[in-house]
Structures are given as C-alpha cells and as structure tokens.
C-alpha cells in the first residue's frame, strides 16, 4: 500500500466535504493510503495573500511543504487551487534565492520544499490501473457522456504546474473511459468559470459559468466532471443563480472526478455526497445516477 501525505485545504474540509468523502472512498477502494498533513494551514490561494501582497502567497504554502517534507515522499492536493499554490511555491523557492532566504527567516530553519506535489488526477492515474478499474466498474457509467472540465489552475501556468497540455488537457479521460463513460468533444474544458470573482463581481461568474454549461449541453454532455472546488461552486452552487439571471432552465449535474469514479465503483450517491449538490436538486437526471448502482 502506498501512502501519501494528504493536503485537504479549506474547501475539502468545509464547502466541499463531499469531495473529501468521495476521495477517501475511492482511495480506500484502491488501497491508497492517505495521511492528512498535521497542522496544515491555508494554501495561499485565499484572497488574503493576494490583497496583502508581500510574500504571504509563498510563505503559507511553503510552511505546508515544510511540514510535508518531514513525512511521506509525495503529497496529494485534490483541490486544483491548493495544487497550484504548492507548485508555485516550489517553483519560486527553487528559482529565487532571496525569497528562499526570507522564507527560512520566517520558518527559522532551512525550508524543506522538495516533496513531490500531486494533483488528484495525477495520483489516480498513478495508482489505478485502467484495466482493473474497468473490471470493477462493469460499465456502470456506460451511456453517460461526461464533459471533462479542467478549469485553469490545474494546467496553468504550464511551466510551473508541469501537467498536461494547457490548451487541450486529456488526463482525466483514461480513468473515466475505463469506467465506461463516453467523453464527448468539449471545447470549454479550460475556459474560465469566473473563479473568485463570485465574491466581488458575481455577474462575471454567472456569465462565464453560464457559457460553460451552455456549451456542455450543446456538446451532448450529461454531466460535467471537475477536480476544482471553486469551479464546482461556480458551476453547481450558482446554477440556480444563473437560471434566475438569464431565464434559463439548466439542470446539469457537476461531479467531482472521485464522485464519478465512486458511482462507477458502486457507491451510492448519498455515500459520495452527491445529494449535497444543488444542481441535482433541480435535476431531472438525478434518477439516472440512482440507476447507475443497480446497473
């Protein structure tokens, strides 16, 4: 059994507990050990570091890296935002000596920042054999078209995250295909959801996320799959706001990758926390996901 340090970040321990829940279920099913990082703090992606400026955007993730450095070889950060900040900090610490010295003054010891940082897709692709997955899911997702939505910070900036093609990422596909799902062409897989503008300029988020849902439906997508809690929030939580603002009537389920795989493995929507999703509350497709278990 391989064991990874697990950095849940704020989302997976609050607004996206279903992501945490489904991740632990899927990890358990494949014997992936998760060891939650002790005394972790903000990854640096929250608005505070951005607004206060200075080194906080690096110092916060650097402390997490430093703690992880004393533990397992690799750390998984399922939230795309956390993954991005941790990679960013690693990049800056290895390229900017002055910044590294300031970080070490703050930590009062030499910083350990070399721990391998993995995003969720990376971890699952490493640990799950598609053939094994296919055997265990028995095509429960067959006939369901999943739109893979990667968002921005999982794959950008490419020279820092060093993951997948920033304009045409594809790494979610092997697992979902193995689980029986079809992956239609979805040109908005990296289009901006509006990100944190939801707090200050909600209309920007509604406009941007609306377009993603609109194009997904145009492409015949039954549900979107993401690994980013903020994208999920904008696409799922705000779907009713989008309907209210534009007079649309969207009911597009938005799933975390671990929820989609969890369904394929036979866990119930309740076990995976899918019942917490607002878009499903208004969805006529809810029943189709209930059916997946029986299939």
């Amino acid at each position: 059994m391989s064991v990874y340090s697990y950095f849940p970040g704020c989302s997976l321990s609050s607004s996206a507990t279903e992501y945490d829940k489904s991740f632990r279920l899927v990890a358990g099913a494949f014997d992936i050990g998760l060891d939650e990082l002790e005394d972790w703090n903000c990854c640096g992606a929250s608005p505070a570091p951005h607004h206060w400026g200075g080194d906080l955007g690096i110092l916060l993730p650097a402390r997490n890296l430093h703690i992880a450095g004393a533990g397992h070889d690799s750390m998984v950060a399922p939230c795309a935002g956390c993954f991005n900040r941790l990679k960013y900090a690693q990049h800056e610490l290895s390229h900017n000596d002055e910044l590294r010295r300031r970080t070490e003054r703050a930590l009062r010891e030499p910083v350990r920042y070399q721990t391998e940082v993995l995003n969720l897709v990376q971890l699952l692709n490493r640990e799950i054999d598609p053939g094994d997955l296919a055997g265990r899911t028995r095509g429960r997702l067959s006939g369901i078209a999943l739109g893979t939505y990667y968002g921005c910070v999982l794959v950008r900036p490419p020279e820092i995250v060093l993951y997948d093609d920033p304009n045409d990422p594809v790494k979610m596909e092997p697992l979902l295909k193995a689980a029986g799902a079809t992956i239609p062409h979805f040109p908005f897989k990296t289009e901006c959801c509006g990100s944190y503008m939801g707090l200050a300029r909600k209309e920007i988020v509604l406009k941007a996320s609306r377009r993603i849902i609109e194009v997904a439906l145009e492409c015949g997508v039954d549900a979107l799959v993401t690994v980013c809690p903020l994208c999920h929030q904008n696409l799922d939580l705000r779907q009713q706001q989008i309907n209210d603002a534009f007079g649309t009537d969207y009911h597009l389920p938005v799933l975390y990758l671990t929820q989609a795989l969890g369904l394929a493995l036979g866990f119930s929507p309740e076990e995976l926390g899918i019942d917490a999703h607002l878009s499903l509350g208004i969805s006529h497709r809810t029943s189709s996901f209930d059916n997946t278990k029986k299939a």
Binding site: P187, F188, V215
Partner: peptide, 10 residues
C-alpha cells in the same frame, strides 16, 4: 485581437 476559442452553438 486574437481569437481564443471556436465552439459550436445552435
């Protein structure tokens, strides 16, 4: 300006 994306709609 540059074009960022081309996609089908209706």
């Amino acid at each position: 300006g540059r074009v960022g994306r081309i996609f089908p709609r209706r």
